[in-house]
Design a protein around this nucleic acid. Structure first.
Lengths: 410, 410
DNA sequence: CTGAAAGCGCTAACAG
DNA sequence: CTGTTAGCGCTTTCAG
């Protein structure tokens, strides 16, 4: 046709072949004579032909689109995760489709089920599961399409999963803080869980808490509820930072009688109040002061993620407490901004590129076995036909990165 | 059919109506008897029917998907922009599809042209144009689908555009710094452009430079190449910060003969070196020192964006220069992390929610007029048929936000 | 208010 | 190696 976008038929006519041959030629399928292929490609180029993926998808049932579901875009962790996944998917000739749930489990469930795109458009899905209810019947939810869970921490995953080195990583972080001389270390990331119950930890932050606890006990240091604060994002971190600062202030008051008020956040004078450096061997804990704030001379904070760590540093600064001079802080994740904040942030850097590779490998394997859109109709290109691959599982690596926030003051 | 996913026909059969009636009922079209609609909805629910968007798109030529193209995900600005656009699009019942170009103009052009999804799948596109070559034949590039350019700053846009308050905003930032008592203010964001040539500024950063320059001249302060540094991201910002710090150090040496070396970044002792506060009326500039570094006692830095501002603060800290004690720093954009960094960042906060509203309004208007997929075949639901809407244009608002990085030290 | 017919553009399956 | 046939699931069009 002369008007509108050129179709495959137009290309075929132009090249003097059938639509089918044109299709095969364009897709680089074997079994097309070179001269024929050349004719077709020339025709396509001349007409500026662009395949109609909509039609292609309808017929073939494949879209080559991988659905990525994360909590939000505007967070240092998720923006990095998204970028890593996106890059890996693109580099394999697939297309990423990214959706955010704004931390709503309902939205996540919707994204996997009711959303019509999910229902029939995507070849596979990658879900960062934190915050999703435990043990949802996930394999059912998404209609049997390939699904990879990130950091879901289920004991017996029913679907493919890539996990973070939660326990080992946080243990390493805490050990490092102890090696740096810290003795009163706050933990930020999860509400307090008694040591005994830590065995049942089923989510990322609880596992990190378990790792931190283990390192404390190994070192003969106490683990109790006065040192544990909730905190998964910067706001929580600020709140935790304030609470930690108040305990430090209480300890200072108890110690030497010198008092000082908190600075004001937006117009404050952070940086002018000068306290004595209290790091080192002071271990005076839990001295109840008159205003009920436990007096603890914290000298370190072990955070469950970098996002919260930034908040902790901010919250401490609101009280004129400096990192690393007064308190050392370590995060977890290794987000990009940790390299250029002031102080730069020591962290457990996880390998998100590796995570992306694992996750996409898992999906691609299932796609190639034909486990797309519910039917495991093996297209005959695989060895053991009909059987569905059992869920696989991987854990990514980590690296302790030392930056200013835990630097020894010389 | 009993096996496979239920189709519209299955629903129609179950409800005892024709597929067409089922379709109309499900889409909430007027002219379906309530009892009939109820029957259809019940049938759909019973069968767990999910529309096949692929088929729907093929037939109707509409996808309700809006394509968003940005430079990258893992940057404080783009992650916030993406989130704002995504939210606005979702709230209107449309679906965002986000793509990153990694700052490659080729990738951006590809996203708009060769990419088969762009060709036929998307109903409209939103492109953050910074870095794209000037005056590309954009309207042609995307085949006539609705396209909105963000911050493209073309004098005569050929397509819809939403711009940032670049010149006014940066002018306000600089005026504020001057009002705070700064007299030697560095500008970070764009290579130096002589005052006369600033009239031709055609991109966001050049316009911001123009605004900063105007404020300087208004205040009777000089504007020359010793005070202007390139910098659009944190790395550039760090480099600029180092250069600025070196000039400050040179000035200090020239002033009082006291020297100090730079701290080391990863293991350094930032925060221990204590210099005199040099803010205030010192205006000794351009004193050439022996090692060729101009001696300038900078007391303020006006940055073209927050991302670079973080880098500047970091770069200054590498030399033991503190913000805001020694130098005040202001950014531009109002990224989320500026609220929780230490120091928190003063900035020109732009209204990205407003931007998202404007952009989506423009797209939706064109979609509803039928300007989708090249054909402006007016579906009769609009007033003036056939005519194509002329390009529209909007500029978003801003707000000066004072935080710690420009706080007066009392 | 409801239904029948036709076909969007492509590709799986098979036939030559 | 190439072509023919049929139809994916929906919606536009037009007739009841």
């Amino acid at each position: 046709m002369t008007s509108g976008k050129p179709t495959l038929r137009d290309v075929a006519n132009q090249a003097g072949v059938s639509p089918m041959t044109a299709s095969n030629a364009l897709h680089g399928k074997a079994g097309v004579k070179e001269s024929t292929r050349a004719k077709v490609l020339a025709a396509a180029k001349k007409l500026d032909y662009r395949i109609n993926l909509t039609a292609s998808m309808l017929k073939s049932g494949r879209s080559n689109i991988i659905h990525i579901i994360v909590n939000e875009f505007d967070s240092p962790f998720y923006s990095k995760l998204t970028q890593a996944l996106s890059h890996e998917i693109t580099s394999r000739g697939l297309t990423p489709f990214i959706e955010q749930t704004q931390y709503s489990p309902d939205a996540a469930e919707h994204a996997l089920t009711s959303n019509p795109f999910s229902g029939q458009l995507f070849d596979g899905e990658i879900l960062h599961a934190t915050g999703l209810g435990t043990n949802l019947p996930l394999a059912k939810l998404n209609g049997g399409r390939p699904l990879v869970l990130l950091d879901a921490c289920e004991e017996t995953p029913t679907v493919d999963a890539v996990n973070f080195p939660n326990e080992e990583g946080e243990r390493a972080a805490m050990q490092y803080l102890i090696a740096q001389g810290c003795r009163n270390i706050a933990i930020v990331g999860h509400t307090f869980v008694p040591r005994a119950e830590l065995a049942h930890a089923q989510n990322a932050f609880a596992l990190r808490l378990r790792g931190a606890c283990a390192a404390l006990l190994d070192a003969g240091l106490p683990y109790d509820e006065t040192m544990v604060f909730e905190g998964g994002c910067s706001d929580d971190g600020i709140t935790a930072g304030h609470a930690i600062a108040e305990r430090i202030m209480a300890a200072r008051r108890a110690d030497c009688g010198a008092g000082a008020g908190a600075g004001d956040r937006e117009t404050g004078t952070a940086g002018t109040a000068d306290f004595n450096n209290v790091s080192g061997e002071i271990t005076g804990k839990s001295i109840e002061t008159t205003d009920k704030i436990p007096a603890i001379a914290f000298d370190g904070v072990c955070c469950a993620n970098d996002f919260a760590a930034f908040g902790v540093i901010r919250g401490l600064a609101d009280y004129g407490i400096h990192v690393p001079q007064d308190v050392k802080v370590i995060g977890f994740d290794g987000v990009t901004s940790g390299t250029y904040t002031t102080p730069s942030l020591s962290t457990i850097q996880v390998d998100l590129d590796q995570l992306a590779k694992f996750a996409v490998d898992m999906i691609v394997e299932r796609i190639e076995r034909g486990e797309v859109n519910g039917n495991s109709s093996n297209a005959g290109n695989s060895n053991d036909a009909g059987t569905v691959l059992p869920p696989s599982r991987a854990t990514i690596g980590y690296q302790l990165v030392e930056r200013e926030s835990t630097t020894a003051i010389i």
